[in-house]
Nucleic acid binder design. Structure first.
Lengths: 182, 182
DNA sequence: GCAGCGTGAGAACGATCATTCTCACCGTTT
DNA sequence: AAACGGTGAGAATGATCGTTCTCACGCTGC
């Protein structure tokens, strides 16, 4: 028989990942303590550790989770704009800019994670690489040079974080226009 | 009269910054302990703290130092190539690729630093922003769209780190060609 | 009602640093 | 030669966590 936890296991997982996403992304992995995750998710430390035996496991779960949700949000944003008649360049960069401006943006969570050497394992790096490769593959829908477009997007994200401005997105958009002409 | 330290103050500073550059860049700020700096530089903790009262001060010194040396190396690399007859596109991306392949590359030290929220202060962010702005200004020598070229360079650097490959540099170079046609 | 089990709260344990302090030493000054 | 100032080596201090443990509780099945 199912015991009778305050929360179901799935609910706890969901809450934990939501907390992890908010905290790891905005503060960076190293600056987030397990107690912070507990406070934000409302899941006790004991339970947290029963689901993710080590902080590094939680980071893995977070990266996986963020990978799927980010790709999802980004592609849905593009598709919505395409459906409403925007040309591909605008759809892609519009979706990007929407993300930048509607979240408490702090750069690319994956690139940021990669920078925190002390916190990141080889498995994490594999997920990060997979995420970026997925993005490149996805962009092949729009251009014969998906790698070049991906470089522009990542550059725009990174610089938007550095300058705290969306100007780099516009600069990237300009440079990307020729890539969309087949 | 000058006391008689084992090393002159300037020599100690130089050694410390060299150690800091090697360690902070390759391991990330958070993963480097003050004792690591001491071991690598040969400068005692006491002296280290007399020159940089807090780790954060050392980080500031490191970012400043890396800013000037990086810009210097990059521009010298470009100028050397221009002098030997390379066209600007090749000079810029050749200099970038040379840096990527001849150092134990781990992405952009400034972008990486920015990702380590817990370790970085507003002053650090100011230096990082200044560094990237300097790069944009510098690129205005070659293109009417320096911001777009800078986005391509940063994107290439970041993706080269993620994929551990120079392919993104080539992709960026292709996308940059139109920017050099005036 | 009782024994057993998984739970939340929170204390406790250990390790890891940044930073400071102790102490013995050496060159300088008088 | 004695006093002084700054030094290196390394121990000591205090915080800060990740992780584990204690304890009392409430629900389960009998």
């Amino acid at each position: 028989m199912t015991p009778a936890p305050t929360l179901t296991v799935d609910q706890a997982r969901t809450d934990i990942l939501a907390a992890a996403d908010a905290l790891f992304y905005t503060r960076g992995i190293g600056a987030v303590r397990m107690a912070d995750i507990r406070d934000r998710s409302g899941v006790s430390l004991r339970r947290l550790y029963s689901l993710y035996p080590h902080k590094t496991d939680l980071v893995t779960g977070w990266l996986d989770h963020r990978h799927t949700t980010w790709i999802d949000t980004f592609t849905n944003g593009i598709d919505d704009r395409l459906r409403s008649g925007e040309p591909p360049v605008d759809a892609v960069f519009g979706s990007l800019e929407h993300w930048l401006t509607t979240t408490n943006f702090r750069g690319c969570g994956f690139i940021n994670a990669l920078a925190e050497t002390g916190e990141v394992t080889d498995e994490h790096r594999r997920i990060i690489r997979h995420h970026k490769q997925t993005l490149v593959n996805l962009l092949a829908r729009f251009t014969a040079e998906p790698a070049a477009l991906a470089v522009l997007l990542d550059g725009a994200i990174v610089q938007a974080a550095v300058f705290a401005s969306t100007d780099p997105v516009d600069a990237a958009r300009v440079a990307a226009i020729p890539l969309f002409d087949r």
